[in-house]
Amino acid sequence: MTNQSNSDFPETTAFSDSQMDGLLRNFFRLETPTSWKLPEPRQGSQGKSALHAASASMTILASQGVGSSASQSGRRGVVMTGTLTVLALSLVLIVSGQSQNSASSALNATHQQDKATSAPSMMLVSPHGNSGSAEKPVSDDGLLLKEADQIQLNPMN
């Protein structure tokens, strides 16, 4: 309807409807302050300009419209941030748990090794080996371990 044919205009005018359309577009392009110039209209994109959203708020309170969309996107943002934080925390916990396990097992192994190396070597006190009982003789003459414990060892001069 906007682009009518030439026949719609009476013959008294020297301009067709499409000529007027171009003339007015050019005129308002020059009239509009530079900072507010719209991008060149694309084919088939009429009415879908960046100001489409602005026009939608013509009938409602602009501040309310902006506020509600902002709060919606804000809520979405909060949910996304929360989810990401939880995921990141669980990842940190898993990784730290794994590293703790490996650290403790490594520590245990080192400890065992240390124990093995630092433990005093057992000295057999009886030719019969470790009797395990104080009542068993630890020598050929029938000396008991109990008695051997009571032997006072004095340094020899």
């Binding site: 309807m1 906007t2 005129f27 308002f28 009239e31 009429q46 009415g47 300009s49 026009s55």
Partner: peptide, 8 residues
Amino acid sequence: KYSMDWSA
């Protein structure tokens, strides 16, 4: 129409 490029 021409300054704002609004639809009808």
